[in-house]
Nucleic acid binder design. Structure first.
Lengths: 253, 253
DNA sequence: GCGACTTTGTGCCTGCGTTCACAAGCGGCT
DNA sequence: AGCCGCTTGTGAACGCAGGCACAAAGTCGC
């Protein structure tokens, strides 16, 4: 364990405990964010291979399938502990179990989707969620015309019932698929309802208390990043001509 | 300009050129990926403020609205050049123009969506794309029942027509919203059609030639990352009890 | 016109994440 | 049983991104 989170070392580290509970906590905390994101990718690949009957996989193969460097993969997996066999590779089933444990996938996470527009509707019907242990159990909207109807078997409630319904269904993850305007209000409601993890599709930066985790998915931003690469490419490819369209007029004094 | 991209300095840097074309190219190349992503966020905030009639914004205000550190914001903007006024802040309109130029948003980017399932349907109807200069102009699917129907006014074509239609409409960005199985095949078709930027919603790692840029949006992965944080929280909050459910049995020899 | 105040732009440092390279460890073959 | 080859796990180096803090540069008031 090289990277100590932030200075504070655990007091004593000499005795020989059989079950090292603080270490479990330390380790979970110590896993870098970037690694967590990749673990999810590895998991998907592993589950796919497991279904094909593959029992063992080397870091090289797994890395190729996940689109990363094999050294990075090994380091990522080493955060979970030593579950590989030198000379052989990783036992697929064991690794699946370990990653699931680390990501907290041993329990189901009930998901509430707020905003049943284009996107919310799609998310409610998206099979990829429930099949991966994230069943959408509640839908909310402001539009009175939508209240009470069922989408993919799930009833749509009014925003005002968020606290009540979320508590009842033990919702752990809230998905905000509203327009930008209502998003902060919805977020506040979710937080008040005890939801501590939010996936935000609305194009606003949400203000949340410190104990709440927000991840933002912004489709327009993704396209703009791609757009940047388009122009960068064109810039790099064209030998020297036609750059005037840039309007770049840098005058050095 | 401190950060020289990769060693090679421009030959002479003494004369007084009026239009510094190579510098434009260098600069576009030098902008860090992380900065590009944030520029898109700044742009959205700026456009919002511009509509409210705000003419000038300080780095502090803009940073707060975008949810970042003000020093980081200033450094990000400095990659575009010096467009702020000390003691005052940034002129909103000028900055909008500069960011749009840098991101290549001065032209429209025609978008093709492949896969008209739940998600593809939502994307086709999503107003956030066209309003930001990314009109969805083509839809594709394999399902014969869908071919020929119109969604949000756009006709659905068969996959096989991707090359033809994309060329005709000058599609620059392809969006893959198919299940994982067909994704690589669709990707190959798009690449063959000359599309060089792809936004991939399918849960697979796409293999593409070097000159093609892929961005992946994986909703299940996002949820799994949130799930990780849920368990991390529970681990940190519970004083010491109930950690056995982890199954964490680390025995130090 | 000058001084005080405000805000930008950036040099420097720190820390995280990635990559390299290799020793340690394990299985299989002889 | 012992050796050989393969693969993991990790120490160490590197590079990039983030944050601090300050000098430069501009505005506003007097």
């Amino acid at each position: 364990m090289t990277a100590q989170p932030d200075g504070i070392e655990p007091p004593v580290d000499n005795a020989v405990p059989t079950v090292d509970v603080p270490a479990a906590r330390e380790r979970a905390r110590a896993i870098p964010e970037a690694t967590v994101a990749r673990l999810a990718v590895y998991l998907r690949v592993l589950i796919g291979r497991a279904e094909e009957g593959v029992a063992t996989l080397s870091s090289e193969e797994l890395a190729a399938a996940a689109g990363v460097n094999s050294a990075k993969l090994r380091k990522d997996l080493s955060y979970l502990g030593s579950y590989g066999t030198r000379g052989v590779g990783y036992d697929v089933d064991i690794l699946v179990g370990q990653i699931e444990r680390t990501l907290g996938l041993t329990r189901k996470h009930s998901v509430a989707v707020v905003g049943v527009g284009n996107l919310g509707h799609a998310l409610a019907g998206y099979g990829g969620f429930s099949s991966r242990g994230f069943p959408v159990t509640a839908l909310f909207d402001v539009d009175e015309d939508l209240i009470g109807i069922r989408i993919a078997g799930i009833e749509v409630h009014h925003l005002s019932r968020i606290p009540e319904v979320c508590a009842e269904l033990d919702v752990t993850i809230g998905v905000i698929a509203t327009p930008g305007e209502g998003a902060q209000e919805v977020c506040d409601l979710l937080v008040k309802a005890g939801v501590r993890c939010i996936l935000n599709f609305a194009p606003v930066v949400l203000q949340v208390p410190e104990h709440v985790e927000v991840r933002k998915v912004d489709l327009a931003v993704e396209l703009q990043i791609l757009s940047f690469h388009v122009s960068r490419r064109e810039l790099a490819e064209e030998p020297i001509a036609d750059l005037t369209e840039l309007g770049e007029v840098v005058v050095r004094p």
